[in-house]
Each structure stands twice: as structure tokens, then as C-alpha cells.
Simulated scan of single mutants.
Amino acid sequence: MQKILRNTMVFLFIFLFACGAKDDGAKLRLDSARRFYANKEYTLAKQEIDSVKILYPKAFDQIRASLAFLDTVRRAENEQIITQCDSLIAMHEPTLDKIKTLFSFQRNKEYQETGVFIPKESLTGGVITGTMLRSGVGEDGVLYIESVFVGSKQKHNRIKISAKDGSFAQSLAVTDDGLNYRFSNMGKEYEIIRFAGTSENGVAGFIFTNSNNPLTATLEGQGKYTYTLSQTTKSAISKSFQLSTMMLQLDSLKTAKEKAEYHIYYLDNKKDKENPDNVIK
């Protein structure tokens, strides 16, 4: 009888010790999450909250408390994102407006739903003056490069920009679909091939990086044709690259802000549903 009683007491002691260790460990994790939250280290706070459920799956009180606290952390994190985005947008918008003064905004309202920003030094009044590269930026911030060729039939569908040190950037091949044109006029062959998005493949960025160095453009297709890029062309494409980069960055910031605002809206609605007495009737 004494032996049974002794074994029972040992088991009870071990059980109580294990429960105490379980609760203490979970509580320490939750306290750590609160400290990270106070220091605005929200990612670390969420990691500590996750560890409560993972490491202490039977610490039910602490798990409930940590899940409730998680919404507080998420709200603060999204408020921080909104503040940071507002600050960066306010900082960069004046620079973007200044860059846009270097461009002419063009849109044919009869045929186009959106317009494009054309570098002022590239404006030709729609007249093709010779073989060249020209560029522009859509209202969505997407940059394009057009390869214009005048001469004998070339049928090119790819461009390669090379520097003297052997480095180069090469577009992807494009089809004749979309904004690509091949036509003849007064015995001359004309080709206007557009590279945008994926097909542009970093060509504009390469020209921007090497704008002060001699660069050659090679048109590739059924044959090859190589010529030297003028400083005016390099300057215009570099400006287009800078404008596109700035517009896409600002668009990304505005999207991040909108997502954060939606997350806060979701958390507020969730709180109202869990506490219907807080809803104003």
C-alpha cells in the first residue's frame, strides 16, 4: 500500500512539474513577444507568438492569449507600413514630377486609352529620320524600346547592345504581333520593332549604366546590322529608364499602403464581429 501511495505521489509530482514547466515556457515566450512589440520589432514578436503554439500545444490559456495579441501586433505592423510608405511617397513624388518635365506626354484620345512619356530629345514629329533606338514610358511605368531600321530588308526581331569591354545586354526575340511594323516606301524598307516588359530584358538598364561609354547596337534576325549609338539616344533611353524605375517604385509603395489599409480594415471588422457590443447601431 505504501509503495502504491509513493508511486502515485511521484507521478503527481512529475505531472505538476511538467504542467508548470509547460505554462512557464509559454508565458516566457508570450512575454518576449510583448517586449518585441513594445520595441516595434513586429516580425520577431510574431515569431515568438508562433512558437507558443508550436512548442507548447497544450498551454491553452497562453495560446488563446497569444492569438489575441497577434491581431494587435499585425495592426501595429500595418500602421508602421502605412507611415513608412507615406514618408517615402512624399519624398520621391517631387523627384518624379521633376523627371517628367524632361518628357512630352503624348496620347491620341481617339485611339489610345492611355498615353506615353517620350523623352523630349527623341521627338521627331512622327517622322522616321533613320536607323535608331527610341524609347518611352507608359502611364503604368512600363518602359519600351523601339528599334527603327531603314534600309534593305532586314527582318530583325532582337537587339544586342555591346560595350568595348565585351559586356552586353540582349533583348529576347519578338514576333510580328502587336506594335511591330514592317513596310516599304519609295524603295526603302522600314522596320519598327518594339521591346517591352520581358522582351526588353534589361537593355535600357545596360545603356543607363554605360551611358558615358561607346556602345554599339546590333540588329539580329534574318541578317545582322551594327551601328554606334549616339549620345542623344543613350541619354534619352537613360532618362526613360530612370522615369520607369521611379514610377514603378512609387506604384509599389502605393500598392503596399493599400494592402496595409485593407489588412487594418479586416482586423477592425474581425474585432467588431467578435465584440458585437462595440458596433455602433
Rank of each mutant, 00 (worst) to 15 (best):
N201G: 02
N201V: 02
N201H: 08
N201S: 06
V203Y: 01
V203K: 02
V203H: 02
V203P: 09
V203R: 01
V203N: 03
A204N: 09
A204Y: 08
A204P: 13
A204Q: 10
A204C: 09
G205V: 03
G205W: 00
G205I: 00
G205N: 07
G205H: 02
F206L: 07
F206P: 11
I207L: 04
I207R: 05
I207D: 06
F208T: 03
F208G: 01
F208C: 06
T209Q: 15
N210L: 01
N210S: 01
N210E: 02
N210W: 00
S211M: 13
S211N: 11
N212D: 14
N213S: 14
N213G: 01
P214G: 03
P214F: 01
L215T: 04
L215W: 04
L215D: 06
L215F: 05
T216H: 03
T216N: 10
T216P: 09
A217H: 07
A217S: 13
T218S: 14
T218Q: 13
T218M: 11
T218W: 08
L219S: 09
L219E: 12
L219W: 09
E220I: 15
E220G: 01
E220F: 05
G221N: 10
Q222K: 14
Q222L: 12
Q222F: 09
G223I: 07
K224S: 15
K224I: 10
K224C: 09
K224E: 15
T226A: 05
T226Q: 12
T226E: 13
Y227V: 11
Y227A: 10
Y227Q: 13
Y227S: 12
T228Q: 12
L229V: 08
L229I: 07
L229F: 07
L229K: 08
L229P: 15
S230Q: 13
S230W: 10
S230P: 15
Q231V: 06
Q231C: 04
Q231Y: 08
Q231H: 10
Q231W: 06
Q231K: 12
Q231R: 12
T232D: 14
T232K: 13
T232Q: 15
T232W: 03
T233C: 11
T233W: 04
K234R: 13
K234Q: 08
S235P: 09
A236H: 08
A236S: 15
A236I: 05
I237F: 06
S238F: 05
S238C: 05
S238M: 07
K239C: 01
K239V: 00
S240K: 05
S240I: 00
S240T: 02
S240P: 10
S240D: 03
F241P: 06
F241Q: 14
F241S: 07
Q242P: 03
L243D: 00
S244I: 00
S244R: 03
T245Y: 00
T245I: 00
M246H: 06
